[in-house]
């Protein structure tokens, strides 16, 4: 068995399952937000803030952002390992892929920290 060091769950089966579980969480959050924004006619700042100040909404948003982070990590890792390869791009591809993977992971973690800062800074 080949162990990869840059994928999220360290196993293909774990990545496969996490990709689906996080997808369902993100879909639920998206659906909630679309319905909320469609039904809230002439939304005010006060309503918007009180929604995001409630504990359940903070936790829902946090779970959604963590799901996005895991989902993006697994998805972009798959894309990079498929296309940024020695066969397609030549001998420097491995170094380039590693740099792109580290960049992707850095942005993903920054998103999570930024989201926590927004949600608990209201």
């Amino acid at each position: 068995m080949v162990n990869s060091v840059t994928n999220f769950g360290r196993s293909g089966l774990s990545d496969w399952l996490l990709q689906r579980v996080t997808a369902v969480v993100i879909a639920a959050y998206t659906l909630f937000m679309v319905v909320y924004l469609l039904t809230a006619d002439s939304l005010t700042y006060g309503q918007w803030v009180s929604l995001h100040q409630s504990l359940w909404m903070r936790l829902f948003s946090l779970f959604a952002v963590l799901s996005v982070a895991i989902h993006a990590w697994i998805g972009l890792w798959s894309v990079l390992t498929d296309y940024v390869t020695v066969r397609l791009l030549g001998p420097k591809a491995t170094l380039l892929r590693l740099l792109l993977e580290l960049g992707m992971i850095t942005v993903t973690l920054a998103y999570v920290i930024w989201a926590i800062d927004i949600l608990w800074g209201i």
Partner: peptide, 27 residues
């Protein structure tokens, strides 16, 4: 679309941050 959405997340977080920062930001 997945790669594009990775960038969209940044845009949406910026919108959320600005809209929650103050009534002026919301407006």
């Amino acid at each position: 679309s997945g790669v594009i959405l990775f960038l969209v997340v940044g845009f949406l977080l910026w919108l959320l941050d600005t809209s929650l920062s103050s009534p002026e930001g919301f407006a």
